[in-house]
Every structure is written in C-alpha cells, then in structure tokens.
Design a protein around this nucleic acid. Structure first.
Length: 489
RNA sequence: GGCCCCUUCGUCUAAUCGGUUAGGACACCAGCCUUUCAAGCUGGCAGCAGGGGUUCGAAUCCCCUAGGGGUCACCA
C-alpha cells in the first residue's frame, strides 16, 4: 500500500462522456498500479448547471465501467465530505484566512463594470485581466461598500512580476509569466467558491498526491499553484493528459455522434472493450499489442508513457475492438451482456428460464462472429425468436421464383430431415449431402434455398448451426410452411 | 489577439544514449479459407508538417515558419 491518492472530480452538469471516462480510467489505473487510493469527488459548485440526475448518471457510468472508487460520497472516509456543496464552510474559512493575511481582498465591481473593462482592454489588444480597482481600498471604504454595494466577491492578490513554473510528469517544466495572471475570484458573490479555489483546497485537504486531469486545465495550473502556496499547501504532482478530439479536430460534442458512456452502453459496446480502447487513446504499452485485458493494462501502465498530443477518437476502431471482445469473451459473459438487449426487445422474458438462457446462448454462439455491437444482435437473430420472419425479396425472386427445381429439392430435404432419428451434426450434414447426390444437383442448390426457407435471409451463420439450433421439428415446419407460402410444392 | 501545449501512414500509435528497409493496429484493397455473410490467415497501399542549422550521421537535438488544440468566466 502506497500513499498515492488520486482523484476524479467531475461536475454533475452532464452525462459522463468519453473524455471524462478516460481521465477517470487513467486515475484509476494509476491508483491500481501503485496500490494507492482512487477518490471520487463531486465538483458541484456550479449551482446553475449541476443536477442530481447527472450525478446519478455519473455514478452509473463509472460503476458500469467497473472504475470503483475507494472514497467518495457513498464511500465516506476520513477526508469527507466528498461533495463540494457540502464543504462550503471549509472554503469560506480558507478565504478568510487569506483575507486576514492580506493575500486576498474584497472586490465590489459589478459584473457589468467588469464586462465593460474587459471590452476596452480587449480592444487595445491586451490580455483582459482584472486591473484591481478594488485592490487597495482602505478598510473604511471597504466597510462602506459592503453596505452599499449589491454584492462582493473575494479576489486573490496575485503578483504581477516573476514567473511560475509548473512541473508536469507528461510535459516537463512549463513556465508561465505572472504578468498574464490576474486577481482571480476565490469566492463568488453568492458565497460559493470558484473551481480553481475549491479544487486546490480540496486536493490539499484530501491529501491528493497526483492530479491527473485533462490538458484544458494546464493553463489554470499556475493560478492554482499560487493559491496553494499562499495557503501554505504542498503541491501535488501534475499530469495533464491530452484531449480527445472529434474526427474534424474540433472539441468532441453531441453533433459528433455518440460521446457519452451511456450511449455506448446503449449501442452495445461492452465495458472491457471501451476500457481497452480508451486506454490506448493517449497511452500505449510500448509493445505491439492492442488487445489488452484490464489487469495487463494495470501492470503496464505508467504516467510517463502517456502521449503529449491530442488524440482523435475513431469509432471504427472502437467497434472493431468491441467485436473482438464479443467473439472472444466467455459465452456465459456474452450471455450476461446480451440479455438486456433481448429483454428490451421483448423476445426473452424478464426472468429468463434456464431453457431460454441456453437457447439464447446457442444463438449467440453461432452469431457472435457476425456482429460488432450488441445493439445489432437482436435484429441479426430475429428469426430465431419468431416464426413470422421476413423474407428477403431478392432471395425469394432468385431462389423461389426463378429456380424451378427449388420446390422439388426443399420437399425432398423436408422428407429426409423428418426421417432422421438423431438430429445432430453429422447426421444432418450427411442427409443434406445425400439429397444433393440423389437429385444430382450441387450442394449449393440445396443449401442456398434451404437457408432462405429457414431464415428468410441469404446470409448468416453456418447452415448446419442454424438447423441444429432450430431443431428438427421447427426446421421441418419452416420448410413446409415456405413450400406452401411460395407455392413451391 | 496574449499566453501555454502539441505536430510520425486517413486514424490510434512504436522507434532505450542521434545510426531502423521508420514497426504494429483500425480503415481500405487483394488473395486464401468457404454452400452465404462474417470471423480467421497471408499480402498490399500509406507517414517523419515545411525550412534552416548542429553532426560523419537527425523522426530523434536547436531555431524559425506553418497548422491544430487549450486557456484568458462570479463554468468546470
């Protein structure tokens, strides 16, 4: 057990999306690898956008992925509470301390004033920084303003000279000029802390040793370091992981298709595949391998091997990988993963009988090579669950209408199958071969129309497998029904 | 716009201290297998952003340019 403590701190303002999931994964992996603790903290200081529903969604997504946390809102330990909105007094206290030490000050500027100033500064081509109108207000005037002004915020007194160096495991030393920093707001007028402040306070109080987060936070880090220093906190180790971009190089958003973990789940991506794919986005084991079970990723993982450059996510590779997992996982596991899809479609009952489970398992066994996501499975196997399956018009035209021999062949197949005592692989195979020989036609002339009669389709699993899964009675019945329906007798 | 980060096949990436026919994977193409479709196997296509240096030698080190991304909120 090491003293490594990492954290994933989402804000409940939306579904957990792929980028957040990867950040969570990297943190989790690092904790696993080092024997440290993975902490889930909820950064809900944005009152407007945070919602309980989103919080639930985040829990669900992380749980589904199997990224379990050692400490969090529902796993209280000595560093709680783990929800920022329940820690307000802690931030207020920290801010008061800075105020008393002269490291922060009250600012009474209104939002409108600020916007105006910003506009002017921007037009002059400068970086818009807060210029500190309220920086040096004498105490008396402060007290007066407190009474007369609408509201006030607490700002950090930030140095205008010198530079701040951020040490990042992935990027090395990054230097920022303090002149570009402004007096950022610590406590908003509604009394809630801002992200930068709350985050620093909590990371320190929660004894976070490594801050692993998205690169978009790199530019905020000098500010955060300064806050930490003013508060007398030790700095954590930073690791800013590259962003995940959409195929058009822009920031990933809804218009790029599925981006939330929930959506992937619904389309039938399995957790193992998503985790494997995500791990490879911005990290590589250093050897020529792509398929890596989680346990191995944990063993091979290191922050140093995380890439510097942003990655564009590739849906095709994800689905390829998912397909690979689908056809190599244990059949029982595949059944577990697939069950909800079939239940949702109403073809398997909510509490499946052993018979139903075995049947679905048999269907999955012969279909798994042909699907990439579980969402396709129901449609692809529909004829195993209903007798009124649709017939492919092209196939019907070619096999049933244009081919005059089909009726004779299928009739014969039906008779021969009916006559079988043991409806098993070799017997059925030999029976079909026998029909071809007997009628002096190629095996294809027998098999192609037979497949169409049994499934309504021209493509699918091995014919023999279909026959065996369907069983003798249903197979024969389907052939007979087809002969009748298309008037082939 | 200021600041920061990044730049190897279309995409994800590998290449310990500079010396490789620049490797793998997805996608794509072809062949094999096969009564279908897949899967699988084999092979192919395809890359060091551009320009200067340093060096016997540079994808690798330095500089410049270009491009992409991030950030500059009383969002996180």
């Amino acid at each position: 057990m090491s003293d490594v403590r990492v954290r994933f701190a989402p804000s409940p303002t939306g579904e957990l999306h792929i980028g957040g999931a990867r950040t969570a994964l990297f943190n989790w992996l690092y904790a696993q690898k080092t024997g440290g603790k993975f902490i889930l903290r909820i950064d809900d200081t944005d009152r407007e956008r945070s919602s309980p529903d989103h919080l639930e969604a985040i829990y669900r997504a992380l749980t589904w992925l199997g990224l379990d946390w050692d400490e969090g809102p529902d796993q209280p330990a000595s560093y709680g509470p783990y929800v920022q909105s329940e820690r307000l007094s802690i931030y207020t206290e920290a801010a008061q301390k800075l105020l008393q030490e002269g490291k922060a000050y009250y600012c009474f500027c209104s939002v409108e004033e600020l916007a105006e100033q910003k506009k002017i500064v921007r037009e002059s081509g400068q970086a818009p920084r807060y210029r500190g109108t309220c920086r040096n207000l004498p105490p008396a005037q402060q007290e007066e303003k407190k009474l007369t002004c609408q509201g006030h915020v607490i700002r950090l007194l930030t140095p205008e000279e010198g530079e701040t160096v951020v040490e990042d495991v992935i990027r090395g030393w990054v230097t920022f000029d303090n002149a570009n920093l402004d007096d950022l707001i610590l406590i908003r007028s509604d009394g809630l802390p801002t992200y930068n402040f709350a985050s620093v306070v909590d990371d320190s109080l929660m004894k976070i040793t490594h801050v692993i987060r998205a690169e978009e936070h790199l530019s905020n880090t000098p500010r955060q370091q300064f806050i930490a220093r003013q508060l007398g906190f030790r700095l954590p180790v930073y690791a800013h992981v590259p962003m995940i971009l959409a195929p058009d190089h822009s920031k990933l958003s809804k218009r790029h298709g599925a981006t939330s973990v929930q959506e992937y789940k619904e389309m039938g991506i399995v957790p193992s595949a998503l985790l494997n794919y995500l791990a490879l986005l911005g990290w590589s084991p250093g050897e020529d391998r792509e398929i890596l079970p989680l346990e191995e990723i944990v063993q091979l993982f290191s922050l140093e091997r995380i890439t510097k450059n942003p990655a564009i996510y590739d849906q095709q590779k994800l689905t390829w990988m998912n397909g690979h997992y689908l056809r190599t996982m244990e059949l029982e596991e595949l059944l577990q993963e697939a069950l909800p899809f079939f239940q949702a479609a109403g073809v398997i009952s909510a509490n499946p009988t052993e018979e139903e489970r075995l049947y679905l398992q048999a269907v999955l066994r012969i279909m798994r090579d042909r699907i990439k996501v579980l969402g396709e499975a129901v449609e692809a196997t529909d004829y195993f669950f209903r007798e009124d399956y649709a017939f492919d018009p092209e196939g019907v035209k070619k096999q049933f209408q244009q081919n005059k021999e089909t009726g004779k062949i299928l009739t014969r197949v039906s008779r021969v199958l009916q006559g079988l005592e043991a409806f098993e692989e070799t017997a059925v195979h030999d029976a079909l071969a026998g029909v071809a020989v007997e009628l002096e036609v190629s095996q294809g002339k027998v098999n192609v129309p037979l497949r169409l009669a049994l499934t309504g389709r021209t493509r699918g699993p091995e014919l023999l497998d279909i026959l065996l899964v369907l069983g003798k009675d249903r197979s024969v019945a389907r052939i007979e029904k087809t002969l009748e329906r298309f008037d082939l007798g």
